[in-house]
Design a protein around this nucleic acid. Structure first.
Lengths: 80, 80, 80, 80
DNA sequence: GTGGTCTAGACCACT
DNA sequence: GTGGTCTAGACCACC
């Protein structure tokens, strides 16, 4: 989950790509498993809003679901 | 990065040459590193459009890549 | 908004009664206005969960609406 | 384009709704017409990021297209 | 603890 | 001027 703040791609896109890959590879199974936003902040060194922007991408793609007070979930039937 | 407004070559070409030399010398590595357009303006005393013209030359040459809102990047595999 | 921990009624019911009275009296208008959960904690000295129980009562009654991340609202058309 | 910062709905959703309505009503025709982000900030009193969040919603819906340095456009064939 | 929302400000390239 | 990105901090309800 290496993010390069100086890289060509925007950090939030790098994060989205990394998470998408982990989900599609099956590393993150439907159910919980996904690190929380706070954990992702710590893991990547990104700010809250940037992490959320990455998650927004995956939510739109139907891969992730967020639940206030509960955490992040991998969608049951991700659109491949 | 001295630019001579009265020189033989047009200022934007002088700038392009100077930047190309720095890239090929390895001073600017693939990844980030390249000064922003604004910085180049300050460094050279040239106008926005002149700086842009210099960058356009290098973009056409495949040496530079630009990412809106992110900055200027040296291409990963510069076409020598 | 005095709450008596030793009173006849459970504290959360006392809070619910106090808030209901304020809403019906028009002190809290439809729209925003209602103090946040955190503010209610400070005002009453009650715990988070106790405050929540009081609010749950009013939500069930249709007097209050809650919006995650936004706050507490008096319902537009309270069921009298 | 009245936005109530204290309203039940999140301001960015209020803005998205207002713009969506204007687009679907034909007030904003395909082409330019849409107020810039800066104008929307002034019109609504919202912050930059909140305006952008509203626009993100409409971009995902396929109603709006953004072009760096050019402005906001109503999509040619909005999905109804 | 979790995620949701908003603000203020900064820097970037693009036209 | 335009939109795009990132940071830092604040407050909120939810579990």
């Amino acid at each position: 989950m290496k993010i390069d703040p100086e890289g060509l791609q925007a950090p939030y896109l790098q994060l989205a790509d990394a998470l998408r890959a982990r989900i599609k590879s099956g590393e993150f199974q439907p159910g919980r498993k996904v690190p929380s936003q706070t954990e992702l902040e710590d893991m990547t060194g990104l700010s809250r809003n940037t992490v959320k922007k990455a998650l927004d991408v995956l939510k739109v793609e139907g891969l992730l679901i967020t639940a206030p007070g509960r955490g992040l979930f991998v969608a049951e039937r991700p659109k491949t």
